[in-house]
Simulated scan of single mutants.
Amino acid sequence: MSLESEAMAGATIELLEARLRRLSYLLTGATEWTGIPTTPEKPASHEETVSRRVARLERELEKLSRSVPAVRDVIQLHDRFPDLFQSPPARKIPDGLSTRTLSSIVLSYATAFPETASRLTSLNDLPVPDAQSSAALIELQPKLDRLAQTQAQQAESISELRVRTARVLQRWYEVGLVGSGECWAEWEGRLEDVEREVRRREVIKERRENEI
């Protein structure tokens, strides 16, 4: 076997091992302190095999998608845009870095390894929410959407009422205050004209009386 064939065979085996570890993590959800998924235990019965469990999960998912619109929307979104649910590709190591540089980079993150492993281990202690409670919350989503729509309509009505109120106040100011002021000013001007005319006639009358 040539070196190229050996390298290809080794890469294939590593890829298969990585896929096997990923499947093990998806099935068990448990890892060692190093982050390597633990080997799943042998099923106790035929109903606990991987194929039976996957079939059971598919039936439950199909049943859930028929009763919960949000789950159905997520499944349709996955069917239409599968790229959104794929993890981003891993970054390749830049070429030209020496072994000493790579080791310094790895050692700089050495303190984060135990912390990350501790956090991953603590995930096993987190309680899983009840499926019925989660389904009840999902069923409330349409009601929340309708309430949000009603709230938006009310906000729009309030905004329209504010505009109409401002227009009424402006009209009242223009007609009730400014218009009344102009009217009073016009009446006052007319009264002044009448007073001047009355005085003029009184003066004329007095002159005529004096002449007689």
Rank of each mutant, 00 (worst) to 15 (best):
S2K: 11
S5G: 04
A9T: 05
A9Q: 15
A9G: 03
A11K: 07
A11M: 15
T12G: 12
I13L: 14
E14C: 08
E14W: 06
L15S: 15
L15Q: 14
L16H: 04
E17Q: 13
E17V: 09
R19Q: 11
L20Q: 10
R21N: 09
S24A: 15
Y25D: 04
L26E: 09
L27T: 00
L27A: 07
W33R: 11
W33T: 06
T34A: 06
G35P: 02
I36N: 04
T39G: 03
T39L: 11
P40N: 02
P40K: 01
E41G: 13
P43Q: 03
A44N: 08
S45F: 02
E47T: 13
E48K: 13
E48S: 11
T49V: 08
V50Y: 06
V54R: 06
R56V: 02
E60Y: 03
E60V: 07
L64I: 02
R66C: 05
S67P: 01
V68A: 01
A70W: 00
A70P: 00
V71Q: 00
D73G: 00
D73Q: 08
V74N: 04
I75A: 02
I75T: 00
I75W: 01
I75D: 01
Q76N: 14
D79Y: 00
R80S: 09
R80E: 06
L84V: 07
Q86K: 11
P89N: 06
A90T: 11
R91N: 13
P94F: 04
P94C: 03
D95Y: 06
D95K: 13
S98V: 07
T101V: 15
S103I: 10
S103T: 11
S103G: 03
V106L: 15
L107Y: 04
Y109N: 09
Y109L: 10
T111K: 13
P114L: 05
A117I: 01
L120C: 04
T121D: 04
S122D: 14
S122F: 10
D125G: 04
L126I: 13
L126N: 01
P129L: 02
A131I: 09
Q132Y: 05
Q132S: 15
S133M: 10
S134C: 10
A135V: 05
A136P: 02
L137F: 05
E139G: 08
E139V: 01
L140F: 12
D145G: 04
D145S: 10
D145I: 05
R146T: 06
R146E: 12
R146Q: 14
L147R: 09
Q149K: 15
Q149P: 00
A152M: 05
Q154L: 15
A155G: 04
L161E: 03
V163L: 03
R164L: 15
A166Q: 13
A166T: 12
Q170K: 14
Q170W: 08
E174K: 14
E174H: 12
V175S: 08
E182H: 08
C183L: 15
A185M: 11
A185P: 00
A185S: 15
E186P: 01
E186F: 05
W187S: 09
W187H: 11
E188N: 14
E188V: 08
E188L: 14
G189A: 12
G189Q: 10
R190S: 10
L191E: 07
E192T: 06
V194N: 05
E195T: 07
R196Q: 14
E197M: 12
R199F: 00
R200N: 13
R200Y: 08
R200T: 08
R201V: 10
E209Y: 02
E209L: 07
N210V: 14
